[in-house]
């Protein structure tokens, strides 16, 4: 007798493109071809979920190539939970490594950008941190404050101007696409949801580095000490509160053994 856990493991393997194990095949009636119905449905649902999340990426390579790439991605990086809105973080890197996609150098960056848009759109409705809530923290403890960004926030540094490319592709605007300088150098982007709207902003390289350190939960004292002199760090920090990009703050001591 094949235990249910083993049956499900074998079935999952066959569903995602592997062969049905002999011990599974022996149990399926009336014939193994019926498994194809499930395989087709599972693959179609997975591809459709990615199509919804990556419309510009699909438009760049066309429906057929996208479906092929999505099916490969599904086999290598299957969703880890039934909330498909949480799936697709690795698609950009996956496309970047995909030999057949090399001809479109900016494809991976467009996928990374679209994933950030989806993450912002789907992020949990967690209230933004109010600066007034920190009034109770004594000033001498401020350097030890560590911040958690709002779950809708993603920082991106992309080699290609994927934001402009995605806009032009989705609008079907060939003139705008032709005007994009692919060699203009890296773009630094901050994507988040504010007031129900998903916003993608280009920011400067030094502001991007400052925010990356801040959003990583680095103690505020270190964040400020590491900021370049030309950056108005106090204003930068105030803007993160004002724009609702922070979710939590805590004074955390290092554990004694870490000292």
């Amino acid at each position: 007798m094949l235990a249910l856990r083993d049956l499900q493991g074998d079935f999952a393997e066959a569903l995602r493109g592997g062969r049905a194990s002999p011990r599974l095949a022996a149990l399926i009636t009336p014939d193994l071809a019926r498994l194809d119905v499930y395989r087709n449905t599972a693959r179609t649902v997975a591809i459709e979920a990615l199509r919804i999340g990556f419309p510009a990426t699909e438009a760049i390579v066309g429906e057929e190539f996208f479906a092929l790439a999505a099916a490969k991605f599904w086999r290598v990086h299957p969703p880890r939970e039934a909330w498909l809105g949480a799936w697709g973080d690795e698609l950009g890197n996956f496309l970047g490594r995909m030999h057949a996609a090399r001809a479109v150098a900016y494809l991976a960056d467009v996928a990374r950008f679209e994933r950030a848009l989806s993450r912002a759109a789907n992020a949990a409705d967690i209230p933004a941190l109010d600066a007034a809530s920190l009034a109770s923290v004594p000033p001498e403890q401020h350097p030890r404050l560590r911040f958690t960004p709002h779950p809708s926030v993603t920082l991106l540094r992309l080699r290609y101007p994927a934001d402009a490319i995605a806009d032009a592709v989705r609008a079907g605007d060939d003139a705008a696409m032709a005007a994009i300088d692919l060699g203009s150098g890296p773009v630094h982007l901050l994507v988040h949801r504010a007031g129900g709207e998903v916003v993608a902003e280009r920011i400067g390289a030094s502001a991007w580095r400052f925010l990356r350190v801040l959003f990583a939960g680095t103690p505020l004292g270190e964040v400020l000490a590491g900021a370049p002199a030309r950056l108005d760090a106090a204003s930068m920090l105030a803007a993160q509160f004002a724009r609702g990009r922070l979710a939590a703050a805590a004074v955390k001591e290092r554990a004694p053994c870490d000292a």
Binding site: A3, L4, L7, F11, A12, L15, Y38, A42, P79, R80
Partner: peptide, 24 residues
């Protein structure tokens, strides 16, 4: 069922109608 090994399989998959599956 639609989850095995921590992966979500994007379809409602058939169970064997056994005592073990009933317990599960």
């Amino acid at each position: 069922w639609s989850v095995a090994g921590g992966n979500y399989l994007t379809d409602l998959l058939p169970l064997p109608m056994t005592e073990e599956a009933l317990d599960v």
